[in-house]
């Protein structure tokens, strides 16, 4: 079919508007991903590399540090994300009550941590959690503990510090997503539920949660990616230690590539582990969302 001048113009403009972005994304996103696939078959250190076939993939299976990093990332994910999402939901529901006093003040206070840079707040947390630091002082004064907790030198407590830090920084962020979603919920649904005699707790679990499901799924995906990206905090507070108890995937790739003799081939292989994990998790989350939607 012959195209008119107008049709050609529309096509030309359509491409012209998106082209700068597509070129940049091709260059700095798609090309690196594909290239790193090729790199992941290279072995050797520094500039000395050669084709190694599946050697890097075999190395993955025996890499104790990688397994440790995976376990740490999973711990952060399994424990931190649910705590944060539940807290954020509770805050959002509490703040959504129009009769609550000081709503604006509470909202601003809870949101404030989002303003800080990851590096700045992690330095703050490092200073607060030092062995004679303010946190231990307060806990000792309140007689919660008898002796100071070795926050940053004990593997268990170091993880707790990281989890608390991330929760502090990101709960308010998730909260505003829920608040925005709650504001879009038709108020008369709650009025109808009250007239029907549905108790508050049931209104929360049977009405609020199902209505917020898409947003909860979205924030869960964001948090998942966030956990896999986790770098700034651990690098600044614990540097992955003690005994690699807080080593994350991102940090491990960074160490492989930029600490001591770089091994780009193998770090590219580990990068692809992340890509695969993201793909699998996204797929699972997508399926869960679809099943739930079908069930309801």
């Amino acid at each position: 079919m012959a195209q008119t001048r107008l049709d050609r113009g529309e096509q030309f403009n359509g491409w012209a508007f998106v082209m700068p972005a597509l070129v940049l994304l091709g260059l700095f996103m798609i090309y690196p991903i594909i290239w790193s696939l090729w790199m992941s078959f290279q072995v050797g250190r520094g500039a000395n590399t050669s084709f190694g076939g599946l050697a890097n993939i075999q190395r993955l299976a025996n890499d104790a540090l990688l397994i440790k990093a995976l376990i740490n990332t999973s711990i952060f994910f399994v424990i931190q994300v649910p705590i944060m999402i539940v807290l954020a939901l509770l805050f959002a529901v509490a703040l959504n009550d129009p009769t609550l006093k000081f709503r604006g003040l509470f909202r601003t206070a809870l949101f404030l941590p989002c303003v800080t840079s990851l590096i700045a707040y992690s330095s703050l947390f490092k200073s607060m959690f030092s062995t004679d630091g303010i946190i231990n002082q307060v806990l000792l004064t309140l007689h919660v503990i008898g002796t100071p907790i070795p926050w940053l030198t004990d593997p268990f407590w170091a993880r707790i510090v990281i989890i608390s830090a991330i929760t502090w920084r990101w709960t308010g962020y998730n909260m505003i997503f829920y608040l925005a979603a709650l504001q879009n919920v038709d108020k008369s649904i709650y009025e109808a539920a009250r007239i029907d005699g549905i108790p508050a707790w049931a209104r929360f679990t049977r009405i609020t949660i199902p209505m917020l499901k898409p947003v909860i799924l979205f924030t869960t995906i964001l948090s998942t990616i966030g956990t896999l990206q986790l770098f700034d905090e651990v690098n600044n507070i614990t540097q992955g230690g003690p005994a690699n108890a807080t080593m994350t995937l991102s940090m491990y790739i960074y160490n492989l590539s930029f600490r001591m003799m770089p091994s780009f081939g193998y770090s590219a292989t580990v990068s692809w582990v992340i890509v695969v994990i993201v793909a699998v998790l996204s797929f699972i989350q997508f399926m869960i969302a679809r099943d739930r939607r079908r069930a309801s």
């Binding site: 079919m1 195209q3 008119t4 001048r5 107008l6 049709d7 529309e10």
Partner: peptide, 20 residues
């Protein structure tokens, strides 16, 4: 108006073909 393309036929305004 010229906001949508004309697949076939002729549009004349004031005796002039305006398709393009």
């Amino acid at each position: 108006a010229g906001l949508e393309s004309i697949t076939a036929g002729d549009l004349e305004i004031g005796g002039k073909r305006m398709n393009d």
